[in-house]
Simulated assay, not measured.
Amino acid sequence: MLDFFVLTLPGLMAAAGIAGMVWAVVRMRRLRAAWRSGIEVPGRCLRLYATTTTRRQGTHRSSSTTLHHVYEFTAADGAHHRFEEAGGPATVIEGDAVTVRYPQGRPDRATALPPGDVRTWVGTGVLLAFLAVFVTGCVGFGVFYLTVFKPIGEKAEERVREPWRPPSAAPVTPPPATPSPVTPSPVAPPPAPSLPDGPPDDFPSGLPSGFPTGMPSGFPTGFPTGFPGGVSR
């Protein structure tokens, strides 16, 4: 549904531009057929008026004025015809006599423009170039939408609809393998010292020589008779 609404407007604009190009080509073919037919009859200008078209693009405004003439002529069969034509010369006013040309048997396609009118050719060429650029822009927008914008929108919609998943952890790189330590071979413990089976042979068996063997027989008699410094008791 979104694609329909997005592409409808540029599609209609491109169709209008193509229709304008077809109208310009058909008009030029009819003018050439009238100029080459060789049928020329006198005519008269009945009315002259101008229309002004204003175009606005943001703050820029431009306007163009187009002259319209209403002509009257009598065909070869005696029938009276009137027609309106845009883009005629500004020197032709009401009441002026003009030469009218039309293809054989088609007085409804009459024109008062002179053969090979330069302004008509230039105006038609400019119109065709503008409409070609306009149509190309509309078609380019549709192609851009279908090839670029729409795939991006579909991917974004898929991302939104997908359930959320936590980001997977980065694989852990195992540390490089280290060589296993070499277990030293067991060393035999030194032999325990042998304990003595009994007391040593040279252990003393009595008191040492000179050690007193009896109690003293009295108290000492050589006590001091005074204190140091000459103080007597």
Rank of each mutant, 00 (worst) to 15 (best):
R29P: 00
A97W: 12
V231T: 13
R61M: 06
T221Y: 06
A79L: 04
M1K: 11
Y145C: 02
T8E: 00
G17N: 02
S63W: 01
P167G: 09
K150P: 02
P174Q: 11
P200I: 05
M1I: 12
E162N: 14
V143T: 12
P176I: 10
A170N: 05
G58M: 03
T173N: 07
T53F: 03
P224T: 12
E84N: 03
M1F: 12
C45H: 06
D202G: 05
D77K: 01
P184M: 12
F227H: 07
E162W: 07
T173W: 06
I93P: 01
T99P: 00
T51C: 01
L7G: 00
L131Y: 06
P179R: 14
H68V: 05
P212Y: 09
V6D: 02
A112K: 05
R47S: 03
M28R: 13
T53Q: 13
G222E: 15
P163I: 07
P200C: 02
Y102R: 06
A19K: 07
P42W: 03
D108V: 10
A33F: 09
G58P: 01
P228M: 13
G226N: 12
T183Y: 04
G214N: 10
R119G: 12
M1V: 11
S205W: 14
V122F: 14
R30A: 05
G222K: 07
T66Y: 00
P199H: 03
R109M: 14
F4T: 14
P184Y: 09
V135S: 04
I152N: 08
E85A: 03
T120S: 14
S217Q: 13
M1R: 11
P196K: 05
S209R: 14
L7D: 01
A97V: 14
A16D: 04
M215C: 02
Y145P: 01
T66Q: 13
W23S: 07
Y49P: 04
P42H: 10
V25E: 05
H69A: 05
A132Q: 08
G218F: 09
S194I: 15
G226L: 11
D201M: 08
L46M: 06
E84K: 09
L48F: 00
L2H: 03
G214A: 12
G123E: 03
P189H: 01
A24C: 09
T65N: 00
S62E: 03
R61V: 15
V160N: 09
A112H: 11
S62T: 04
F211I: 09
A15F: 10
